[in-house]
C-alpha cells in the first residue's frame, strides 16, 4: 500500500524525481494562477459589482480580517504568504473529490516544505518589521538562559505543523483507501465528504497557526522594543 504520493514517480534522473506530488502541485498552481488571472481580469471599482467579484472580495476580505483578528495589523504585508498558504491547502484538500487524485498535502515532503516556509517566514517578517537586531534580541529575553528554549520552540512548532497536517491528510487518504476496499458502496462517499470537512479545517488550522506564530513573534519583539 502506498502511504505517500511521493512514491509514484513519473520521471527520475539521479537526484531529480518528478513524482505525483510535484505534478499535482504544478497542476494546482496552474489552476490557481490561471483562475486568479481570469477572475481579476474584469474587476470593476464601481459601487455595483458582479456576483463573482463579490464572492472573490468576500474570500480575500475574510482572509485579511482573520489575519487582523489574530493580531497582525499590517495585513496587506502578510496576505500574500498566508493567503496563498490557505488557498493552496484548501484547494489541495478540496480536489480530493476527484478520482485518482491524491492531495500533495498527504506527502510529508510537502507539509514539511510548508512548515519550513512558515519557519523562515517568522524571522523574515519579523526582521522586515523590526530589524535584525531587535529580532535577535528577542531570543535572549527575558533572560539569556531562555535562548535554547526559544530555539527548541522554533523547531518543535515547525515540526508540529508539518506532522499535524501530514498526519491528518495522509490518514484521511489511507482511511478512504481502506474503506473502498472493505465497503466499496456509499460509505466511501460519506468519508470523502468528511475528508473535505477535515481538509478544510486543517487548512484553516495550519494557516491560523502560521499567522499566530508570526504575530506572536512580531508582537513579542514589538513589546520588548517598546519596554
Amino acid at each position: 500500500m502506498r502511504i505517500s504520493p511521493d512514491e509514484m514517480v513519473f520521471f527520475e534522473y539521479g537526484f531529480v524525481k518528478i513524482n505525483f506530488t510535484i505534478v499535482t502541485t504544478w497542476a494546482i498552481m496552474l489552476f490557481m494562477v490561471i483562475g486568479s488571472i481570469l477572475v481579476t481580469r474584469k474587476l470593476v471599482i464601481k459601487t455595483k459589482i458582479s456576483r463573482w467579484q463579490s464572492i472573490l472580495e468576500m474570500v480575500v476580505t475574510g482572509i485579511k480580517e482573520q489575519i487582523e483578528e489574530v493580531g497582525l495589523h499590517k495585513s496587506k504585508t502578510y496576505i500574500g504568504f498566508l493567503g496563498t498558504l490557505f488557498l493552496f491547502l484548501f484547494t489541495s484538500n478540496l480536489l480530493t473529490i476527484l478520482p485518482v487524485y491524491e492531495p500533495p498535502t498527504s506527502s510529508l515532503s510537502t507539509t514539511a516544505a510548508l512548515a519550513v516556509s512558515v519557519f523562515f517566514a517568522v524571522p523574515v517578517f519579523n526582521i522586515m518589521e523590526h530589524g535584525i537586531l531587535d529580532y535577535l534580541r528577542s531570543y535572549v529575553k527575558p533572560l539569556p538562559i531562555m535562548l535554547p528554549f526559544h530555539i527548541i520552540s522554533e523547531f518543535s512548532r515547525t515540526l508540529a505543523l508539518a506532522v499535524r497536517l501530514f498526519g491528518n491528510m495522509m490518514s484521511g487518504v489511507i482511511i478512504l483507501g481502506i474503506l473502498i476496499t472493505i465497503t466499496p458502496l456509499v460509505f466511501p462517499i460519506v468519508m470523502t465528504a468528511f475528508g473535505l470537512l477535515t481538509g478544510s479545517v486543517q487548512s484553516y488550522i495550519f494557516t491560523i497557526l502560521a499567522t499566530v506564530f508570526i504575530a506572536a513573534a512580531a508582537n513579542e519583539t514589538e513589546t520588548e522594543v517598546n519596554t
Binding site: I3, S4, D6, E7, F15, V16, K17, N19, T21, I22, T25, W26, M29, T84, L85, F88, P104, S107, L108, S109, T110, A112, A113, L114, V116, S117
Partner: peptide, 15 residues
C-alpha cells in the same frame, strides 16, 4: 519512502 528531499525542496520552491 515517507520523506523525499528533492520533493521537499521542489515543494518549497513551488510554494
Amino acid at each position: 519512502m515517507l520523506f523525499d528531499w528533492f520533493t521537499f525542496a521542489a515543494q518549497l520552491v513551488n510554494f
